[in-house]
Design a binder for these strands. Structure first.
Lengths: 246, 246
DNA sequence: CTCAATTGTGTAAAAAATACACATTAACAA
DNA sequence: TTGTTAATGTGTATTTTTTACACAATTGAG
């Protein structure tokens, strides 16, 4: 883990204004990566946004992104952005869609490849030192800068779909969690209520949970058991995986 | 319908060599679109490929693609390629994934946005006049130029998945078809055998088939009924659509 | 007229999803 | 210490969905 992300930011992260000048000086199509970074905290699904520094979008929030460097793989660019902004590496990242309407960016022709990322807010919490960067409840994500609202909507829908096919949710939880935590997460992402007994049945049947023989602490009621996710077992089964159903 | 696609081609379609010089003269990242165009003929799933004209890939087959023009939307570029190559417009087209490894193209940095397209071979049949362009059985698609094998594999997997969630198969069939045709199509795409009775049951339950009160002609056995697909009804239901299961 | 090939149809069995209730545990307040 | 609160942990019956499976009817060909 790096010691100070804010320093990195000042040094390495281009502002949108800087991007603008780069795009203008180019005579072709510029390529960027934008990340929709999801987190889960206080039983709410959150997304990490930054304030736009373009005049046109003054005060609006936007996704985290940057231009792709000439000798950088696309995925590497997405990882770089995540690392710079959250200090986290080794996180879940999935390419979602590429947006390339001619006039989507006021600075010129910028095509953007978008990625969806799931991170564990506990691990990341202390590293946001820039007050222009905030976790937003997904309820309140409206009217983003550029075409970022559309991008965000697409990524959120993708997340909803993917989490019903693969147990990705674990990427959003701390290492140890209770089944209630897990269900809260699924209910937050899918925006539904589920039957507690059937939910447990389904997850136990999947057989990806390792019982830690520990209990929740400091809860004002009967504590639940804690589990961790069996990533190895999932990776093995993933090839043949057809899907979960909720 | 345009009268002569081959003329269009000579005038408008860049060769890969031409792309190469464009890429080399640029100092940034070039952006292209590649299309995986699927067809269905003689009960086999086919994909449209063209011979590479790059020395490095001499004799190998590659996907149909072109550079994106500076003032052209991404989707428009994909439609343009389809129109130029098949003469067809108004076809099913879906963006699949963007490939951007630094050295994926020998001519320089070219990031490519890939699209999957489904077309009706009957409508298109007469328009291939270029003998460097061919329909290939999907069984025989191996060792494509560039990273096109990977791209093709990704698109084929996507097709297999999508066709189990949405009734896209109709885009590959003629307007009138029998249930046997439909089942042959699904069996070809998914590479499985299905129970005839259960297959029929499932499709009738979906309620997207319009009985034309016509019969197959010139078959050496009892002829089957012909149907057409109810696109309007599907479009209405699509919003709430969760998925078919096969 | 018979043969070959394929269509069209229904039902029973198995599997999966859903609905639903009560005893148990720990923290806290009285 | 005891009762209250708020949640955990568990099993079964019902419904729905999926699967497996067989036989009569139709057409063209010989």
């Amino acid at each position: 883990m790096t010691s100070d992300v804010s320093t990195d930011k000042v040094k390495n992260i281009k502002t949108l204004t800087a991007i603008q000048s780069e795009v203008e000086s180019s005579n072709g199509i510029a390529l960027s990566v934008d990340c929709v970074i999801f987190g889960f905290d206080e039983n709410k699904l959150k997304v990490l946004l930054i304030r736009s520094d373009l005049k046109k979008y003054l005060g609006k929030w936007s996704l985290l992104g940057d231009l792709v460097r000439p000798s950088e793989d696309l995925d590497a660019a997405a990882y770089r952005i995540l690392k710079q902004r959250t200090g986290l590496s080794d996180v879940y990242l999935e390419q979602v869609e590429t947006f390339g309407a001619v006039s989507r960016h006021p600075a010129g022709r910028v095509v953007t490849v978008t990625y969806c990322s799931l991170i564990n807010v506990q691990h990341h919490k202390l590293k946001i030192l820039d007050n222009e960067l905030h976790w937003h409840d997904i309820q309140n994500v409206t009217d983003l800068a550029f075409d970022h609202q559309q991008i965000y909507d697409t990524c959120y829908q993708r997340l909803q779909k993917r989490i019903q096919e693969h147990p990705l949710g674990f990427n959003l939880l701390p290492k140890k969690f209770s089944l209630r935590d897990l269900q809260n997460l699924y209910e937050a992402i899918l925006d539904t209520k589920m039957d507690r007994r059937n939910f447990r049945k389904k997850f136990f049947a999947m057989d990806f949970l390792i019982d830690l023989d520990e209990m929740e602490q400091d809860v004002p009621h009967r504590p639940g058991k804690l589990y961790k996710f069996n990533f190895e077992k999932y990776e093995k089964k993933k090839k043949k995986w057809v899907g979960i159903d909720f």
